[in-house]
């Protein structure tokens, strides 16, 4: 088993196991609230808080929880943290609370959080679980920042609320408001997932190319040997069939 470090777990969650682009889980809030960068960042911090808190509690409590009622116990812990987030956002950032709306209570059923609790926090020590929580949270933040900034720039012509392009009769640039509507979200996530799949495939091809020169010789040898065998077999068969036909004629 490979050795795990705090920092390694943190980085793994951001890029290699990015929850949105690689694991493809917890997509509902990613698509729903990324109409502006502010919302995206707010959602990411809310989810990260719940993720780190629930990872911490679950990895601490895992050995006391019987296996049969594991999932309901995890859900109770996650729901408690979600309620904290909900009350805090409602009190201190009412605008954000209004924008995110139903998706704050829905952090409870976000697959990222229950998935990490089940797959990681319940089996690993507290320190690593916190690192995993922070890493996955930052990965989620990265995904939300990418998607929401693209959508805000293309759809509203602004970023973090600041107008980037002033449109009037002279410039005649109009934002494509489809990008802040639902179809734009689906289109963008489809293209981004496609991009990540393409990158992954290209990387795999590069890795095989490095070992290719060495493999090429072996492959060629095996192929030529097999071909020789087949030729030999065919010749034998032909001989046999000729013999048998000869016999039957006789």
């Amino acid at each position: 088993m490979e050795k795990r470090s705090f920092f390694g777990e943190l980085v793994r969650g951001i890029w290699k196991d990015n929850p949105t682009f690689v694991l493809m889980i917890g997509l509902c809030p990613v698509l729903a609230i990324t109409t502006s960068l502010k919302n995206g960042v707010g959602m990411a911090f809310a989810a990260t808080f719940v993720l780190v808190g629930s990872n911490l509690m679950i990895s601490a409590l895992a050995r006391f929880i019987p296996d049969g009622v594991r999932i309901p116990c995890f859900i109770v812990v996650i729901a408690a943290f979600t309620t904290i987030v909900e009350l805090v956002t409602a009190a201190y950032t009412p605008e954000l609370y209004k924008e995110l709306g139903i998706f704050i209570p829905l952090i409870v059923v976000n697959c990222i959080i229950l998935g990490r609790a089940e797959a990681y926090a319940s089996k690993n020590p507290i320190g690593l679980s916190i690192a995993d929580g922070i890493g996955e949270g930052l990965g989620f933040l990265l995904a939300l920042v990418i998607i929401s900034s693209i959508r805000e720039v293309l759809g509203a012509g602004s970023l973090w609320g600041y107008q980037l392009v002033r449109w009037n009769e002279v410039t005649a640039i109009k934002p494509a408001s489809i990008m802040v509507l639902p179809p734009g979200a689906f289109l963008l996530i489809g293209l981004l997932l496609g991009f990540f799949a393409w990158r992954k495939k290209r990387k795999a091809e590069k890795e095989t190319a490095q070992g290719y020169a060495f493999q090429e010789g072996i492959v060629a040898e095996i192929e030529s040997a097999e071909r020789a065998k087949e030729v030999a077999k065919k010749e034998k068969k032909e001989e046999k069939s000729e013999e048998s036909s000869g016999e039957s004629q006789a």
Partner: peptide, 14 residues
């Protein structure tokens, strides 16, 4: 090939 599976499904959903 890169769009096979989930990416193409999302584009159709769009």
């Amino acid at each position: 090939k890169a769009l096979k599976g989930a990416p193409m499904a999302f584009i159709c959903t769009a």
